[in-house]
């Protein structure tokens, strides 16, 4: 059974790690979580990013956060990736599988998955 005592143990383990982590994340993944995003399936996408970043041990480098409606509801689920010194990348019409691919190729590998970006979608 999970208990609060177990949480205390996690705390001990984390304290040193958290101090190191402060202000070091250079990549920010922002998932649109307003009514439009949620209805289109943003929740599994957000879960996939959080799990993917965890499993790939990228938590020092990448933060995953939520935002409201950014005004392009027809393209939801929408995810924006911000990286210092680079242009923002906007991914559209995502699902959990595409999210996992973006974690692997973009967040880990540094290569934008062009086919899922808004630019590529609009051309079709």
């Amino acid at each position: 059974m999970k208990s609060l005592a177990e949480l205390a143990a996690i705390r001990e383990k984390m304290q040193s790690k958290v101090a190191l982590r402060e202000g070091e994340a250079s990549l920010r993944v922002v998932v649109g979580m307003a009514t439009c995003g949620i209805a289109a399936g943003a929740r599994p996408v957000l879960n996939a990013f959080v799990d993917g970043v965890n499993n790939a041990n990228l938590t020092d480098k990448v933060t995953v956060t939520q935002t409201g409606c950014i005004g392009i509801c027809q393209y939801e689920p929408v995810v924006e990736v911000f990286e210092e010194g680079k242009d923002k990348v906007t991914y559209v019409k995502l699902d959990a599988q595409k999210a996992a691919e973006i974690v692997e190729k973009h967040l880990k590998g540094g290569n934008v998955v062009t086919e899922y970006t808004i630019g590529a979608y609009k051309k079709d």
Partner: peptide, 10 residues
């Protein structure tokens, strides 16, 4: 010190 948003806590 530890945020509830930390992946480990989540």
């Amino acid at each position: 010190e530890i945020s509830l948003a930390e992946p480990e806590i989540q």
